[in-house]
Amino acid sequence: MDGNRVDRRAFLLSLSPTVASVAGCQLAPGDGRATAETEPGSTAASDTETDGSPSPTPERESTPAADPIATTIPGDPLSHLPDRSRVIREFMPAVGPASIAVGFPTERTTTPESYCFDAGACRFRYAWHGGLIDIPYVKDDGPATIDGETYYAATRGFPLRFGEEGREPESVDFRGYELVDRLPEFRYVADGTEIRHYLRPVENGPGVAQTFRIPDAEAPIRYVADRNAGVSIDASAGEWAGDRLRVSAAAATEFTVTIRQESA
């Protein structure tokens, strides 16, 4: 169930937390209904929304900017997993509604680095550095906002092409993820081909090394790169022809495409 794709690279490259918030703004606030609390026993049937959900209200409390994934649960926090990834499914700006923000373990990067994976479109969407995300958890406050500077966005749709003709898959199906060495490995199926997609930080980043594992590839795979300014893209296997990387079926069992922000 792929989403409608929108070219927003130009926007994303200048993404700031403020801009992201505006861009993600969802609805005209409210539907005109009152939002007073309902007293038990009240028979005012139509004065309060009763959809069992947070609802439009002009009165918004600011959401605490606290770490959304605090670990200090008395008794057992994740003391045994001090440098885990933060994998947060949330409405994210400028992507599909089934997206995932991933913050790399901070021990593995010089500065906090994060990226967005779209579980609807089954692809990496953009990466940023500086922080993770702020989540409003309040209706009409829109999606999460990115805490940091976006340095890369992939805007050319699903990046892998199949068959000798290099066709784009007609369907993608998200199967989930598993933490491998405390980083998520995403699993999905594109036109029947199973793909494992593992993203990890790079040395001398910011950057993302994307390892694709396609054990059942029967023909060469093509990877279509989106070459953002100020970012280098390298591959562990295959041959480049312009923006297209051709990877043999044998090499497609595991190959890595590395995106790295070039130093100023």
Partner: peptide
């Protein structure tokens, strides 16, 4: 491990 059992439905991105 987080496995998708089903995502065979739509999301419009709307909060409700």
């Amino acid at each position: 491990r987080y496995e998708t059992v089903s995502d065979e439905f739509g999301l419009s991105g709307n909060y409700d």
